[in-house]
């Protein structure tokens, strides 16, 4: 009798989900955000189809405001996996110069929500893997593994298909698409343990290092390039920081830390008293903001 560990069971479940998508979708894609969850998802895809390379491309919906270190890992990760990397930047947002400093919520809406819709329409993808987990946020806890979006990409939380056993109903009408979340049942701790156990390469920003920072609205932000508007006379302060979650650098709060190894990161996480989304400006609106964003088509 072999007792499978919880990570072995989570891994097997995610692989099963990915293979089901491959068997039922015509044109799948994996959304790749370069973060730790994407890294785990990509690793699982390599396992699911080995010895074949994962039979779909990676898609990065880029906002042009990610950390430099993320852009560096992006190309390398795709190449290592033997997958095509597609990068989409919303041309309208680009033209209008939408940025997180001047445009607030519009930045996320145009670069990410609109950008994603554009990319899915452009390439006619009918299934997109995403790295969302149910433990991240309240409205995520109720999302199905196979989540259906209407022709306009909207999510209807009251009209979800029941998911029984391991039987996923992937049938869809014309113009409809599926978002698939193979990491649904993973927690933040599971992700870190798995990265540690499997030796998965992640962006160095997750590890502590001295980095130039400024404080904005209670968030500790990293000055990642010259686009960061400093107040007159303001100079970035070097602090030992790392990130629990990665997004657009002007929107992602760092925490002061000395953790430079995975066990130390896990140690900090277990002893910490705040959730990982606390560092995200996007979730700070009204209580049900994520649910609202998802109905509009946010991933």
């Amino acid at each position: 009798m072999t007792d499978l560990t919880h990570l072995q069971r989570l891994e097997a479940e995610s692989i099963h989900i990915m293979r089901e998508v491959m068997a039922s979708a015509e044109n799948p894609v994996m959304l790749y955000s370069v973060g730790k969850d994407s890294a785990v998802m990509l690793h699982l895809a390599k396992k699911a189809f080995y010895p074949s390379p994962p039979p779909f491309p990676l898609l990065h919906v880029d906002t042009t405001w990610k950390f430099q270190a993320m852009y560096e890992l992006r190309a390398k990760a795709a190449e290592d996996a033997g997958m095509e990397l597609l990068v989409h930047q919303n041309p309208e947002a680009k033209e209008k110069g939408i940025n997180p400093f001047d445009h607030g919520a519009l930045h996320t809406d145009m670069w990410k929500t609109e950008g994603l819709k554009q990319a899915l329409d452009k390439y006619q993808f009918d299934a997109a893997f995403g790295g969302a987990r149910r433990d991240e946020e309240k409205s995520r806890a109720k999302e199905r593994v196979f989540s259906f979006r209407g022709a306009n990409h909207q999510w209807d939380p009251k009209n979800q298909r029941p998911e029984l056993w391991k039987l996923y109903n992937a049938r869809k009408g014309k113009g409809e698409s599926i978002r698939v979340f193979p990491l649904s049942n993973w927690t933040e701790l599971d992700i870190w343990q798995y990265i540690h156990l499997e030796n998965i390469e992640i962006v160095p920003l997750y590890f502590s290092a001295p980095r130039p920072t400024v404080e904005r609205d209670g968030l500790l932000l990293m000055v990642d390039d010259e686009r960061f508007p400093l107040a007159p006379g303001e100079t970035p302060v070097e602090r030992h920081i790392r990130f629990r979650t990665l997004g657009c650098y002007p929107l992602t709060g760092a925490e002061e830390s000395k953790a430079t190894t995975l066990p130390e990161i896990i140690q900090e996480m277990l002893l910490t008293t705040t959730s990982e989304r606390q560092g995200r400006a996007i979730d700070k609106d009204a209580g049900a903001s994520m649910e609202k964003k998802k109905q509009e088509g946010y991933f």
């Binding site: 007792d3 499978l4 560990t5 919880h6 990570l7 069971r9 989570l10 701790l189 343990q193 540690h196 156990l197 066990p263 130390e264 896990i266 140690q267 277990l270």
Partner: peptide, 14 residues
């Protein structure tokens, strides 16, 4: 001893 802790938690069932 975070390593000892991780070792225990990698052998959890579900």
């Amino acid at each position: 001893d975070i390593d000892a802790y991780l070792d225990i938690h990698q052998h959890k069932s579900m």
